[in-house]
Measured scan of single mutants.
Amino acid sequence: NQASVVANQLIPINTALALVMMRSEVVTPVGIPAEDIPRLVSMQVNRAVPLGTTLMPDMVKGYA
């Protein structure tokens, strides 16, 4: 199964993503693939992302 990017902490709106904020986990539904974690670093989220939430492409500015 494909691992997705999951929030490792609460990520406030407009926060630039850092490695420590993300982990990979096999979840349903599938979100952003875990292999894209390096690409996500320094991109901003466009909403608050609670701990344990799967990151979806529409949550990250400039990802989709």
Rank of each mutant, 00 (worst) to 15 (best):
N1W: 11
N1V: 15
N1S: 15
N1R: 04
Q2S: 14
Q2N: 12
Q2K: 06
Q2G: 15
Q2C: 12
A3V: 09
A3R: 07
A3K: 09
A3P: 09
A3C: 14
A3M: 15
S4T: 04
S4H: 01
S4N: 01
S4F: 02
V5S: 01
V5C: 09
V5T: 09
V5M: 01
V5F: 01
V6G: 01
V6A: 02
V6D: 00
V6K: 03
V6R: 01
V6M: 04
A7G: 01
A7K: 01
A7F: 02
A7M: 05
A7I: 04
N8I: 07
N8F: 04
N8G: 06
Q9M: 14
Q9L: 11
Q9G: 05
Q9P: 01
Q9A: 12
L10T: 08
L10G: 11
L10F: 14
L10S: 14
L10V: 12
L10N: 13
I11V: 06
I11D: 01
I11F: 01
P12W: 04
P12E: 12
P12M: 13
P12G: 11
I13K: 11
I13R: 15
I13Y: 11
I13N: 15
I13G: 08
I13P: 13
N14E: 09
N14S: 08
N14I: 03
N14K: 06
T15D: 03
T15S: 08
T15V: 07
T15K: 05
A16M: 12
A16C: 15
A16D: 06
A16K: 10
A16H: 15
L17Y: 00
L17K: 00
L17A: 00
L17I: 12
L17V: 00
L17E: 03
L17F: 00
A18G: 15
A18R: 09
A18V: 13
A18W: 04
A18E: 14
A18I: 10
L19P: 09
L19R: 12
L19F: 11
L19S: 14
V20G: 10
V20N: 15
V20M: 14
V20L: 13
V20K: 13
V20I: 12
M21Q: 05
M21F: 06
M21L: 05
M21Y: 08
M21P: 03
M21R: 00
M22E: 03
M22Q: 02
M22L: 14
M22F: 06
R23N: 10
R23H: 05
R23D: 06
R23Q: 06
R23T: 07
R23S: 07
S24G: 13
S24E: 14
S24K: 09
S24Q: 13
S24A: 14
S24I: 09
S24Y: 08
E25N: 06
E25Y: 05
E25C: 06
E25F: 05
E25M: 08
V26C: 06
V26A: 09
V26G: 04
V26N: 10
V27I: 06
V27F: 03
V27S: 04
V27K: 08
V27M: 06
T28N: 10
T28A: 10
T28C: 12
P29H: 04
P29K: 05
P29A: 04
P29N: 04
P29L: 04
V30K: 06
V30A: 12
V30R: 04
V30N: 14
V30W: 06
G31L: 02
G31P: 01
G31S: 02
G31A: 02
G31Q: 02
I32N: 01
I32S: 02
I32P: 02
I32E: 00
P33D: 06
P33F: 11
P33H: 12
P33A: 11
P33V: 09
P33S: 13
P33R: 08
A34C: 07
A34Y: 10
A34E: 14
A34Q: 05
E35H: 09
E35N: 09
E35F: 10
E35S: 12
E35Y: 09
E35Q: 12
E35P: 07
E35M: 10
D36C: 12
D36A: 08
D36L: 14
D36S: 14
I37Y: 02
P38A: 10
P38R: 07
P38Y: 12
P38N: 11
P38S: 12
R39K: 14
R39M: 15
R39D: 05
R39I: 09
R39H: 08
R39V: 11
L40S: 00
L40C: 03
V41S: 03
V41G: 03
V41P: 01
S42G: 15
S42R: 08
S42M: 08
S42E: 12
S42K: 11
M43F: 09
M43A: 08
M43L: 13
M43Q: 10
M43C: 07
M43I: 04
Q44T: 15
Q44G: 04
V45I: 06
V45F: 00
V45A: 04
V45L: 10
N46I: 11
N46V: 11
N46P: 02
N46H: 09
N46K: 10
N46G: 08
R47G: 05
R47N: 07
R47W: 06
R47T: 13
R47A: 11
R47M: 15
R47S: 11
R47V: 13
R47Y: 13
A48R: 11
A48M: 08
A48I: 13
A48H: 13
A48C: 06
A48Y: 14
V49D: 03
V49C: 05
V49Q: 02
V49R: 01
P50T: 09
P50H: 11
L51P: 15
L51M: 15
L51Q: 15
G52T: 01
T53R: 12
T53A: 12
T53P: 01
T54P: 06
T54V: 14
T54K: 04
T54C: 05
T54W: 00
L55K: 01
L55I: 14
L55R: 00
L55H: 00
L55P: 01
M56L: 13
M56V: 07
M56H: 07
M56F: 09
M56Q: 11
M56T: 14
P57R: 09
P57M: 06
P57L: 05
P57T: 05
P57G: 07
P57C: 08
D58K: 08
D58G: 14
D58Q: 10
D58V: 08
D58E: 13
D58P: 07
M59A: 07
M59Y: 09
V60N: 02
V60K: 02
V60E: 01
V60D: 03
V60M: 04
V60L: 11
K61W: 12
K61V: 13
K61A: 11
G62Y: 14
G62R: 08
G62T: 06
G62P: 04
G62A: 09
G62W: 07
G62V: 04
Y63K: 04
Y63A: 03
Y63S: 03
Y63V: 04
A64L: 13
A64W: 05
A64R: 13
